[in-house]
Design a protein around this nucleic acid. Sequence first.
RNA 1: GGGGGCAUGGCGGAAUCGGUAGACGCAGCGGACUUAAAAUCCGCAGGUCUCAAGACUGUGGGAGUUCAAGUCUCCCUGCCCCCA
Length: 878
Amino acid sequence: MPAHPLSDPSRYLPQAIEERWQRHWRELDLDDTPEQGEGEPCYALSMFPYPSGSLHMGHVRNYVITDVYARVQRMRGRRVLHPMGWDAFGLPAENAAIERGVNPADWTEQNIAQMRSQLQRLGLSIDWKREIATCHPDYYRWTQWLFLQFLDAGLAYQKEASVNWDPIDQTVLANEQVDGEGRSWRSGAKVEKRLLRQWFLRITAYADALVDDLPSLTGWPERVRTMQANWIGRSEGAELRFSVVAPDGSAVAEPISVFTTRADTIYGATYLVLAPDHPRVESLTSPEEALAVAAFCDLVTGQSEQERTAEDRPKRGVPLGSYVINPASGAKIPLWIADYVLADYGTGAVMGVPAHDQRDFLFARRHELPVRQVIIPEGSNAEAYLGEAWTQEGVLIESERFNGLSSAAARQAITAAASAEGWGQARRQYRLRDWLISRQRYWGCPIPVVHCPSCGVVPVPAKQLPVELPRDVAFSGKGASPLAQLEDWVNVPCPRCQGPARRETDTMDTFMCSSWYYLRYSDPHCSTVPFRREAVNQWLPVDQYVGGIEHAILHLLYSRFFTKVLRDRGLLGFGEPFERLLTQGMVQGITYRNPHSNRYVAPADVSDPNDPRDPISGELLEVSYDKMSKSKYNGVDPAKVIETYGADTARMFILFKAPPEKDLEWDDADVEGQFRFLQRLWRLVDSCLQRGLTLAPLAVQAPAASEADRELRRAVHGAITAVQADLEGNLQFNTAISELMKLSNAMAGLIEAASPGVAQEALRSLLLLLAPFAPHLAEELWQKLGGDSDSGGDGDGAGSIHRQRWPVADAAALVRDTIPLVIQVKGKVRGSLDVPADADSATLEQLALASDIAQKWLEGQAPRRVIVVPGKLVNLVP
RNA sequence: GGGGGCAUGGCGGAAUCGGUAGACGCAGCGGACUUAAAAUCCGCAGGUCUCAAGACUGUGGGAGUUCAAGUCUCCCUGCCCCCA
């Protein structure tokens, strides 16, 4: 008769132990942040989630990675801050309000409660006493306070701007929230251009600092640094001024400036183009062209920036009827407007050099403008010119005093001449533009200013913060922001003159809220300032930040910007928020697609995974691993996995299956395999207990002498060394876990033959190494073995394995008497030989030459050359 | 088009400095236990040839440097990501 599973002590039942230990740890306040005491502070941070209501595998991966890091650091004696919070403002809450009539605040709170309890089942060592949510007034009060800091510093301003308007969500989007096809990142709608008065943060003022500090971020992936540098897009060039000839032939006082990185091509400029919304278009349009120009401007207004600048689109434009003078050659060239020139990029005007710019070339050909070649490839002649733009560097021709110069030399010479003669100067240009932060939405942080007819924009005084979101609001989903419709809330006295005034009804981009949350965790309940200087300077910069690559530009750039501004305001003692960054890969689910019907099939409906067939038509299905999503039926619910296998298996699997930065393919069979490993550990400890082996102090310490003892100690200390190496530098959890498997395999074979002291050391080390990865099982086995009775004299050690110190490898245990020496002949491995570990090169050479292997392969000849790599191999070259 | 990255068994992935390629796991195969199955335990396993011992071959393809190349250099092909 088999024993009842629950009463069978030889079975590992995670459900029976995990909740119990989680309760025990809470009672011990195990995860509290030690504000004082010994040990270096260490800040381990995961990117906080949006409280959508359900935890997905991407979250699990993110938080487990950070948790293992945090637990290892604690065991190594550091004081660790490991907090969690909620990026809680945003559109889904408001959409829920519109669709289902629930209050966004209530909806969000419910979701937070649900996700928190799901997270807690993972056994994360998070200090929940420091939990924050960006939608709570005691948090967003400080977001508003920080906004006022930006306002005071001249870094927040309002501007009438052509903005990205999302017709579905009825709101304005930042450039970063519009994808390459001109669609909203959230609704997927084609974005339109609209002219509205908006709030901006002057991130461009920090463009240089944001680029220049990138090389110092050595703990960041190269990829992310490159992406940020490209996003900022700094280029060195020149601003050149063209004087203007009005349609009636008269000179105009104000010249037009262009920015170019190719000042060397100035003699090739045969026309000049303004953006259709450039402020001078109207005044420089001749009466004859007025109708065509107005029609063209109308056409362009409806297009997104991406549409206008796409390379594969025809370059459309119309002439204004005015002319400008090429400042270098003195030639009179026509002035045009074209859709591919953007008003807010550079000066809103570009010089057209068709011979040396592909876009200009296409435009010139379409509109029959002259092409004038002024650069030739070095070593060629002018005749070699083909029917395409020559966009590379070369040597100047047809450029008067600059003929014969190289492109690089000419850029300097021409810029210097322009500067001396007053028609230009060197200039830096950025792709980055100011950050649009206004949102015409309810569920966001209100912008704390009042518009007064007599005083203008007046900041809400700090002591009146927060400007609270009113709770009772009607959500129709149409027209203006719900806040704008609340007259009671909108109408307030001006803080300065007390006259009637109106509140700002825009709320902030949620990226504002998430640009400083990592500072708040240092003292999350402080009610006098957003963060105390001593607290942030103690804990920050963040030692290890973990999150998805999708934030490589948005969140990570904004956070760096905030940090630098706050440093310059004297509020922080550092200029970069995140010292080390790990961008974890996606979790992908097995995806079955019918290539004929183009429909997805749920894995549960596929009866034989080795021969996947459509359950209806019987057609062969295509198998791939894709990002988990509802529409592909390929999602795996973390709650179900925890229910079936326990949190420890989920944690181990997710860490073992792939290196953290790589995409991870979820595979049920591999999860099963991971569960089996934990069961083997359980049985290993169980069999030790059966034989009376525990972690209780031994009365007599027998000297470790047997071969089994030496071998076991070698395995133990080899594992400690290897795991240590995997956790330093790049966090290689996958190989760390494989080392644990190797150790457990070795112990299964050796522990019975080992003496009690050595066996104890092995058990103890295995469990300590396991503790960060599978905290519940490690604790259970530790307590079963009576580990606390052997807490090594550390008074703090009692109560939990998680208060123990990380094991230290004993180098002496790794020493071997003999090692296998590889014998190569002409670089090919021909065999190996056991040799004394401490043999010197000369001895190794002699041993190798005397070996049977050498006899066989050298056929009695003396080798021409012998290479000895001590401890590794001997290569004999005949 | 520009920038960045990747390519290793049936699969996920290992392999500090150039030094025994394929650790660890999944799937597979064989065996033990069992009436049987599951679970568990033991073993095999890159490919080709061979009864075997063994030999040859092998890290996307091609060249090069080296005593020695998955690792370094150049070229090509394919895939992924970012920006256009």
